[in-house]
Amino acid sequence: MFLIPDPVGRFFHRMASPPHFYALTEKLMPWLVVLFLLLLLPGLYGGLVLAPPDYQQGDSYRIIYIHVPSAWMSLFIYMVMATAGAIGLVWRIKLAEIVAISSASIGASFTFIALVTGSLWGKPMWGTWWVWDARLTSELILLFLYLGVIGLYGAIDDKRTASKAVAILALVGVVNIPIIHYSVEWWNTLHQGPTVTKMDKPSIHVSMLVPLLLMAAAFKLYYVIAMLQRARLELLQRERNAQWVKAMLEKRA
């Protein structure tokens, strides 16, 4: 651990202690919600009202303000889940395990939203709800991977063992992430290529890009809020016999 400076190490050590995590997240929660709303409302207003209609697609392109951030989140959450799972697997940190499993169902929901909004947009634009092209298929497999993680966690009674199993499965599934991300570049698909994260300059006008980035940031915060809420609940359930939970309940009663 000589690579990690002392204060950072101390911070993570404190964060990994359940009572401290529980108290800290409780204090943070209102701030996170305020920040989330501050990003969400301008993002929605800018995307739905201020941004000009597209010269080809008219107003129906506006679904990207939901579709694109949720598609980004579906990949991002999977990486968070796999990383947290790996940390839990190696250092046996209880909180990392809890973060991993709390992320799974949120990630599955975002993947589902990305698929549904994409197909709603595809009907008027491509003339079909669904095509079996690389991006869509690999995103669908991502949904199955999430569902597999959730199913495996539910099937094993001992939750510490279940977290281990889930971490192994999530790490194996990471293989799919680069395939989804690069599918539109590797294969010649119906789904369009990347427009925002290009090396030279985004091929999207700034009046449409700014709300999109605001929405993406808002979705990230939403994920943090939802994940922390689930993690707090999971923590209470796992530690229901611990001294600090009893002490806290008695203090509140």
Binding site: I141, G148, G151, L152, G173, V175
Partner: peptide, 17 residues
């Protein structure tokens, strides 16, 4: 697990794709 059969297909088939 006692009833791992269905779960196994859910875990393995996506990776077979």
């Amino acid at each position: 697990l006692r009833r791992g059969g269905m779960l196994l297909s859910l875990l393995v088939l996506p990776l077979y794709v």
